[in-house]
């Protein structure tokens, strides 16, 4: 390794912020009920998974996403879902010589709205404790696909996508607790320049008084139908043919019946073409 970075990260972790936008699982919202969340997600990475899954160093890159996520029951079967990253910032760190102290390369940053998702979710089945739902998501490329002085900063992928997703959830009794398990699978059809992909995940959780403890694992498999990994620019978490398998613990604390806090940390234990570094999230939620 020929370059040492100021920031040293010992674990090789990552998770993808959009996962938070699919928190509804197999359940749909009752009519006129909702769930809303204001959250911050950030990742600062000086190493990445290569196309062969190895880990190599890179200039430190950071992405910050401030978003609102909302679910609202249009009926007892239909739930409207929106994920709106209203402020997304992508940063490339300044390069400074450790020998002379001179600035080798000035840092760079861009700010914009990020790629936004609008979804409609339908309760397909309720059989005993098992709930099944289907969701259609329209991904809107409001983010910047090639920004900054060299075009390598991004706040979005720059293309529309359509995703179909199935969620199945169940809850059961263990002593005085009622843990739940959810699984999901999705097919994401992306338009120009980007391969289609399959997403999948499993989530387990349990509520302990005012605390909700969740452990989830998510993955992406790229069909690689578009060969070019990066288009004309570069990417951090917005690349083409990105693949990963992540694990993310998350906690939520109910301050009142309608208001609470969430926090999580996550990371990939396997990945390709994506930053290999921890990411974090913190937010507030309310259920009017």
């Amino acid at each position: 390794m020929t370059k040492t970075m100021k920031k040293s990260i010992s674990t090789l972790l990552i998770f993808f912020s959009v996962c938070a936008a699919f928190a509804g699982d197999g359940w749909v919202q009752p009519k006129n009920k909702g769930y809303f969340k204001l959250s911050e997600w950030w990742l600062i990475g000086d190493q990445h998974f290569t196309n062969t899954g190895e880990i190599d160093p890179n200039q430190t890159r950071a992405t910050y996403i401030t978003s609102i996520y909302g679910e609202y029951g249009l009926s007892n079967k239909f739930t409207a879902v929106a994920y709106f990253p209203f402020f997304t910032r992508s940063v490339a760190y300044t390069q400074k010589s450790a020998t002379t102290g001179e600035i080798i390369q000035q840092g760079d940053a861009i700010n914009s709205i990020g790629d936004t998702e609008l979804s409609i979710k339908y309760g397909l089945l309720q059989k005993g404790p098992i709930f099944l739902s289907g969701t259609y998501t329209l991904g809107l490329p409001f983010g910047i696909a090639e920004g900054g002085t060299d075009g390598s900063l991004q706040t979005g992928i720059g293309t529309t996508y359509h995703m179909l997703r199935l969620d199945a959830s169940t809850s059961f009794r263990v002593g005085k607790f009622y843990p739940f398990v959810s699984v999901n699978g999705a097919y994401n059809h992306r338009m120009e320049r980007f391969s289609n992909e399959m997403r999948y995940g499993i989530k387990v959780g349990v509520e302990l008084n005012k605390w909700l403890i969740i452990l989830q694992s998510n993955g992406i498999y790229s069909f690689k139908n578009i060969e070019n990994n990066f288009g004309d620019g570069g990417t951090t978490i917005f690349g083409n043919n990105v693949e990963y398998l992540s694990i993310m613990p998350e906690i939520a604390y109910k301050i009142t019946d309608k208001f609470g806090l969430t926090a999580g940390v996550g990371g990939a234990f396997w990945g390709k073409l994506i930053l290999a570094t921890p990411s974090f999230t913190a937010g507030i939620f309310w259920t009017p």
Binding site: M5, K96, A98, G107
Partner: peptide, 25 residues
């Protein structure tokens, strides 16, 4: 508290960090 949270978020995002490059030869 929410205002404090938002201010903290903005401060977190505002900075552009620095990599020290070990470039001695």
């Amino acid at each position: 508290n929410i205002s404090l949270l938002l201010v903290s978020i903005l401060l977190l995002q505002a900075c552009i960090g620095t990599d020290l490059v070990d470039d001695f030869v």
